[in-house]
Amino acid sequence: MAAGGDHGSPDSYRSPLASRYASPEMCFVFSDRYKFRTWRQLWLWLAEAEQTLGLPITDEQIQEMKSNLENIDFKMAAEEEKRLRHDVMAHVHTFGHCCPKAAGIIHLGATSCYVGDNTDLIILRNALDLLLPKLARVISRLADFAKERASLPTLGFTHFQPAQLTTVGKRCCLWIQDLCMDLQNLKRVRDDLRFRGVKGTTGTQASFLQLFEGDDHKVEQLDKMVTEKAGFKRAFIITGQTYTRKVDIEVLSVLASLGASVHKICTDIRLLANLKEMEEPFEKQQIGSSAMPYKRNPMRSERCCSLARHLMTLVMDPLQTASVQWFERTLDDSANRRICLAEAFLTADTILNTLQNISEGLVVYPKVIERRIRQELPFMATENIIMAMVKAGGSRQDCHEKIRVLSQQAASVVKQEGGDNDLIERIQVDAYFSPIHSQLDHLLDPSSFTGRASQQVQRFLEEEVYPLLKPYESVMKVKAELCL
């Protein structure tokens, strides 16, 4: 049975990233139509530049190519590739079939990587351009969430054990800070992308030097003109047959890092959902379990974690691919890159769409948070109580021993009897502590235990987050809708 299948058929496997999760716009960027249309555009740009620099290419040939950029006979191309065992030459023939007058000058002087690699770089750039505003929107939604809850005390956790208090907004800023680093890295790697350009079979530009009869300047002009037509500021000066596969490492490393950030955020949300302090959106008709109707599973956060793990592992592909590119190139890269580049971007696209949807509907339960604080705060307040007693004339050592005994009794009630923490009640009825009984409410005010959390939130948002989001103001209103 021949390899390949009808990918629109229910009898043929289709990647869930495309069929179930990723956005239509990201799927289109990695589609065959987008790819092969870009090949034709690159052939047109090459012909236009070659004509401008004096090669015998007519206006009629150029116009014929322009008129057929979208006229792609995919069936013919597939048949040609089956016959020739070469995808680029299959599309040269297919393009030439609908451009008979231009057929002889299509791909003039070029090698397969002229269309293959340059198209990949265009796709990487455009895919990054799709991700950047999506990530900015996630940051914006979380920034709104953090600002609104900047002063809401909550129990902090280290080692997932109760620690000092923080605020809900401050905790959210930990998430935002990681995503801001990801946004900066995505922008950097996007701006650092260079075009492969017009380089020939081993990167020496020998074929173009021959076409222009040894004119170095025209060869350099050709490279520059096509690079500018493709919208790049610069091209690699040095290439082998391909652009260095280190570029793929750079791009997928940034995406993998984004995956790590999203995994951490969504894990926190899942843990908070278990504590009943916070939940992701839950639709009115949504079913959490087929057997347990009360369940409210954090399905979206779980999906993000599941896909983020996949995204983090994909960076190993370009690392290994770059390491086995012998001399000017081997074909070890080809099949692998067809999979890992598309999957990385479709996965990143999915987790950003999902995280935006989550961040637009996060639900906080202040009463649950308050109750958990009441359970733990008495123990945390013991040092403040000791200091207040010393100020009232008591002995630190005597007070410490009193607190120690009462704390152990209260802990026994919590752990052995399943009761509430009654340390404060014990202190309130103990005559030894009568000098500070009137101060206990103040000493137990949760806001006095959150330090500068709310001020940190305000400063972080104003100095770091809002300036970073400013270039994306025009796209901030787009909502994230999930079908599944």
Rank of each mutant, 00 (worst) to 15 (best):
W45C: 07
L258D: 01
I176T: 09
D129N: 12
Q428P: 02
V251F: 10
L468C: 15
S447T: 13
R83M: 11
L124H: 10
S323D: 02
D191E: 14
E383F: 03
I385A: 04
D87I: 00
R20Y: 00
F208L: 15
E417K: 11
E64W: 08
A260C: 07
W326M: 15
I123V: 14
L55G: 01
I106L: 07
V405F: 15
G169N: 04
F433P: 03
Q241T: 00
L443F: 07
D268N: 13
W326R: 03
S359A: 08
P435N: 09
T94V: 15
I122M: 08
H107A: 00
R374K: 13
R270H: 01
C98D: 13
L482Y: 07
Q164P: 03
A260P: 05
V390I: 05
R37F: 11
T58C: 11
R196N: 07
R303K: 06
L362F: 13
I249G: 06
A78E: 14
V247W: 11
D144N: 14
F379D: 03
I351M: 15
Y294G: 03
L331K: 04
E328Q: 02
T119C: 15
K75C: 10
Q177D: 05
E60W: 08
H7T: 15
S334G: 11
W175I: 04
R426D: 10
F28R: 08
Y472F: 14
A18H: 12
R85S: 02
N118M: 00
E277Q: 05
I403S: 05
D192T: 15
T52K: 13
C27P: 10
H437K: 12
V189L: 09
C304P: 00
E220D: 12
V92I: 06
T52L: 10
S19I: 04
S434I: 11
A342E: 07
L355H: 04
L186G: 10
P162T: 05
I339T: 15
G231L: 07
L440V: 10
T201M: 00
I373E: 01
L174C: 12
E81W: 00
C266Q: 11
K82G: 14
R404F: 08
M299T: 09
D87E: 13
G288N: 02
Q161V: 02
M76W: 13
I139T: 11
R396N: 00
A230C: 06
K264Y: 04
E48T: 07
W326Q: 07
R20V: 00
F212M: 13
Y34G: 09
D441V: 11
I265K: 08
L17Q: 12
R190K: 15
N185T: 11
G54P: 03
E60L: 13
P10D: 11
A453I: 04
K229Q: 07
V368N: 04
S454V: 12
E370A: 09
P153F: 05
R37T: 11
G394Q: 07
D349A: 13
Q356S: 11
R137A: 15
Q177M: 14
A431P: 14
H400F: 03
E64H: 09
K470E: 14
T119G: 13
T382L: 04
T58Y: 12
L179I: 14
S19Q: 14
V324R: 03
A411P: 04
M380P: 00
M76P: 06
L482I: 15
Q325Y: 03
V390F: 03
I237A: 07
T244H: 15
H217M: 12
V262Q: 05
H217A: 12
E213W: 12
Y34K: 07
K470R: 14
Q63R: 11
L42Y: 02
A22M: 14
R37P: 00
L209M: 08
G393K: 07
K229S: 13
K224E: 11
R296E: 05
L341S: 15
Q456C: 07
L46I: 07
V475G: 15
